[in-house]
Amino acid sequence: MKKVTMQQIADHLGVSKFVVSKALSGKGGVNEMTKERVIQAASQLGYFNQKNGYVKNVRPAMGTAVIPPGKQSVLVLMPNIRSQNKESLYWGKVLEGISDELEEQNLGMIIVSEPRTEVMMNIINPEGILGMIGVGQIATSLLLEVHRTGLPMVLVDHEDNLIPADSIFANNVDGTYRMANHLIGLGHRQLHFLGNLNFSRSFRDRWIGFRSALEENGLDVQMHNDPMLFLDSVETGGFGPGLKEWLQARKQSKPAALPTALVCANDSIALHTIGILRELDIRVPEDITVTGFDNIDDAARFEPAITTVSVPKEQLGRRAVTKLLDRLADSNRAVEKWLISVELLYRQSASKPGAAAHASI
């Protein structure tokens, strides 16, 4: 395969090779818009797929010793966006798992919650940083800064097409596949997915599992342009007015066309959805079954308790540490994606389709 050069990228964009070199090396002198254009063009031309596609600092080989003598630290990057913070019922548990495993390994942890691209090099270069664990959605530009240093990294619940890195996910596809099959087994035939496919890789995978179950059972699958697949502000519940309008229209149609089950991309969406249904005098689960995903603490305490998919959040964090240590021991192994098994929890928000639901068929 012919090597892709910086000159080819420059010609493709109509800029100088000097600009491309600056953008790809992380040096200053190039504005963010140009930098993003260069990165995108480099990706499209296959530059990043090459072995030497990134400019890296050479880190000394560690041999058979995974951790050098003395206490070392791991950088944990968890941008405070989309409720990705220590107070989150989901991300906080992941962080606890990382912290507990690092403590057991006698390793320290440096948490960076609001990083800026231009200062990342000052953060990640200190001696003693073994590698980085990224938690949740992280901008490509930040990951690129880490990758340039040669630091090994592991991403939790996120992956980036431009940055080769090990990743840890819950088995999202399997979780919604099994949930949808469970509901179909209860007798549901009008199932609808609620989420935002552009929000995260996990949400897209959960939709894929849901869709696969319906297709295998010969049931109609909602169209890809369905607004319920692209809800606004899923992290804050800001989708409420749009969902309410959608439900009202279906409830008032002749004949009524309410689904019998709403499969939500996570528990937070499920909790907000049940609130909207109550405003419309639609009962859960008597009229509509509602399920979630993640098993946050509020899902069990809610009335009715939410039928959900339990994600072992602490284990995601612990396994991220394990994967990072594996990478330190063998930097030449292929990039890996680990899937952690999930478990269905059957609670009160799901039941067989009721009389009201059958009337709408």
Rank of each mutant, 00 (worst) to 15 (best):
L186G: 04
T149A: 11
L130A: 07
L95K: 08
M78R: 01
R116C: 10
K93Q: 15
T117P: 00
T149G: 06
I123E: 08
A139T: 05
H147K: 14
Y90Q: 05
N106F: 12
L191G: 07
S141E: 13
G97I: 04
P164K: 11
I184H: 12
V119D: 11
S141H: 11
V119Q: 08
L194H: 08
W91L: 07
L155R: 01
I138E: 06
V156K: 02
L191V: 03
I123T: 10
V112E: 11
I184R: 08
S113M: 12
T149C: 13
E127T: 12
I111R: 01
I163N: 04
T140E: 14
D100V: 09
V119G: 10
L155T: 00
G187I: 12
I98P: 00
G97Q: 09
H182F: 09
I124S: 01
L194C: 04
N106Y: 15
E127G: 07
I98H: 11
I129C: 01
D174S: 11
P126D: 12
H158I: 13
K86W: 13
V94Q: 03
I184W: 03
E103M: 14
L151K: 03
A170C: 06
N106E: 15
P79M: 14
V156R: 02
A170M: 10
Y90D: 01
M109P: 01
I133T: 01
N106S: 14
L143R: 01
D174T: 10
K93F: 05
D174E: 12
L89E: 08
G185K: 10
Y90H: 08
A180F: 15
T140F: 07
V146T: 09
G92Y: 13
G136L: 02
L194A: 08
L191A: 10
A170G: 02
I123P: 00
I129V: 06
L75V: 07
S99W: 14
L130H: 09
T140N: 14
D157Q: 14
E118S: 08
D157E: 14
L89G: 01
G136K: 02
H188Y: 13
L142V: 04
H188T: 07
